[in-house]
């Protein structure tokens, strides 16, 4: 079996790529297809993947606030809370220290740079 971490990643990739909410069954099938497409060993694992495992992964992702569940339908359908690009942008805001109330968490190579400072640096590089 693939680790839960890898499965979380694979499930999120599917949800980010898909346009609409998907059921756990649908996701299981897609995961099985995906791994069958990559190589033989992984394909074997994909077929073994149980829907309950996918549900476990989905509930972990839901707890992390990454996935939301449509409870109106049966079986429940799942979708990503926000897009991949939005999450990346959040991370970058944290990394650059520009998000509010997130100071000094990360040591970053370059912190904040003022526009005039950047101009000086560009001049220095001969890019101007």
């Amino acid at each position: 079996m693939a680790s839960l971490g890898e499965l979380e990643r694979a499930v999120m990739d599917l949800l980010w790529a898909g346009q609409e909410a998907a059921t756990a069954n649908k996701l299981r099938d897609l995961l099985a297809q995906d791994s069958a497409a990559t190589d033989g060993i992984a394909g074997h694992q994909g077929k073994d993947l149980a829907v309950t495992t996918v549900l476990t992964v989905l509930s972990r992702l839901e707890k992390k606030g990454l996935v939301e569940r449509e409870r109106g339908t049966r079986p429940h359908r799942y979708q990503a809370v926000s897009s991949r690009a939005d999450h990346t942008a959040d991370l970058m805001h944290e990394a650059l220290g520009s998000a509010p109330d997130r100071e000094a968490v990360l040591a970053r190579f370059i912190g904040s740079v003022s526009e005039s400072e950047a101009a000086t640096l560009r001049k220095l590089l001969g890019q101007d």
Binding site: G97, E103, G111, S114
Partner: peptide
């Protein structure tokens, strides 16, 4: 998605002194 970074960076800029990079260089 890159432009918000730029605008907020030239603003307050968290805990860093705006002079940090200049003084390093």
């Amino acid at each position: 998605d890159t432009s918000p970074d730029a605008s907020s960076l030239s603003g307050t800029g968290g805990a860093d002194s705006p002079r940090t990079t200049a003084s390093r260089v």
